[in-house]
Design a protein around this nucleic acid. Structure first.
Lengths: 225, 225
DNA sequence: AGCAAATTAGCACGATCGTGCTTTTTGCTC
DNA sequence: GAGCAAAAAGCACGATCGTGCTAATTTGCT
């Protein structure tokens, strides 16, 4: 009968299928462009049949966002955390992140897209998204800080700065890859990450990579809220 | 009646006003979220009155995009081109870009937002946007290449790479500033740009190139460092 | 001033939006 | 297989979407 699924009831299974499909659709049209009728067609359900699962449009958007974040955490962040500390872990993160969208699970694409789409629209969806991105940036900073604690990175390197820089590299990758369809996008992202890491490495570095702002280096571990 | 500004006819003036308003609205809700009825209310016109100016929704989106790009070119790129070559010009570009949205017309915000929104939706709007971004990246690369020709930057530095990196820094700035509302966003963007420039500087070039107050140009409003 | 042309409003249309009901169909337990 | 709860569909609603056409108004020119 049923193709060997899990212990979930039918309703939960279709709900999961709906959300998975919704993530893909939202990757194209954005969270705001997500529509109940269109999604119902795309999921092979009637509009009201689908609506019984997602109780409102806002609830749908929130659920989609949570699904996407869970995909991203499961496919990118958590696996990267199993790589050795420092540079290997950073590279693992970047590798898996770059594969996001090529391989399955476009959740990573969606949370990036949604972050731009909703950055100026108040509401519960924005609130959730903001928290998710806070957590994402914190994760990157922590991964970097692990390399600092290991002695791989300079002690005066700021994890916050690194997190922002690395995220910027990924955003530039999305831009070049998705909008400009530039086949060199990935290579450039890797080059940029390598430069970031080179600047962060502890030993002797020929040129001053640090910003001219050489205020009293109060403390590098001043990154948490 | 009221003090007319230019030689334009009434129709062209209201059309310009509509598009200006549309850029602001689209900065919030995106190009896709832009709606004729809502925009008419926001512009103080009837729906059909407005629709006579923008002949279709797609034509409106195209015109809005062109308006935004022109704003960005007029307020950011072209003024920066009047700064001295090399680092000063890069800094002028970044300075004006960072001021985008706070100080003046938010066209720069829109083209960034639209680039993410439309990166996966075929059509004429995407085509225009892609071309605009190609031109933008080319502009950044040319600005950097000018510094290479001047001997300020290493000859083996790739302008393409620098352009992508700088754009990534700006994207990270938007992310931190607009979504996370992080007050340190601008400082971090400046730090990142400084690191980019430090990595690009000619190894055997004396530090004098970083002369802090060398801009004596006409319009470059250097307010800090 | 008056008049032609350009600009704006009024109104109507089919489609689709999000959201509720009420049935019908399905899946699961005896 | 029967009965029942869960899931899906059918249908309807007001609102708003993009888009036309026509009538009224305003503007620019002589």
């Amino acid at each position: 009968m049923d193709a060997g699924a899990s212990e979930e009831s039918k309703g939960q299974r279709t709900r999961a299928a709906i959300l998975e499909r919704a993530v893909e659709v939202a990757c194209r049209v954005g969270l705001g462009g997500l529509t109940v009728g269109q999604l119902a067609v795309e999921a092979g359900l009637s509009k009201s049949g689908l609506y019984a699962h997602v109780r409102s449009k806002e609830a749908l958007q929130l659920a989609v966002l949570e699904t996407a974040a869970e995909q991203f955490a499961a496919e990118v962040v958590r696996p990267a955390l199993q790589a050795p500390r420092g540079e290997p872990r950073v590279h693992a993160l970047v590798d898996r992140w770059l594969a996001c969208g090529r391989t399955f699970a476009p959740g990573g694409v969606l949370i990036v897209k949604a972050s731009v789409e909703l950055d100026d629209q108040e509401g519960a969806v924005r609130d959730l998204l903001e928290e998710q991105h806070r957590e994402l940036v914190r994760s990157i900073a922590r991964i970097f800080a692990g390399g600092v604690a290991d002695g791989q990175f300079r002690v005066d390197a700021a994890p916050d700065q690194f997190a922002a820089d690395l995220y910027g590299v990924m955003l530039a990758y999305y831009h070049a890859h998705r909008l400009l369809r530039d086949p060199r996008a990935e290579a450039r992202a890797r080059t940029a990450v390598a430069a970031l890491l080179a600047a962060a490495r502890s030993p002797h570095h020929p040129g001053a990579v640090r910003a001219p702002d050489d205020d009293a280096s109060s403390d590098a571990s001043h990154d948490e809220e």
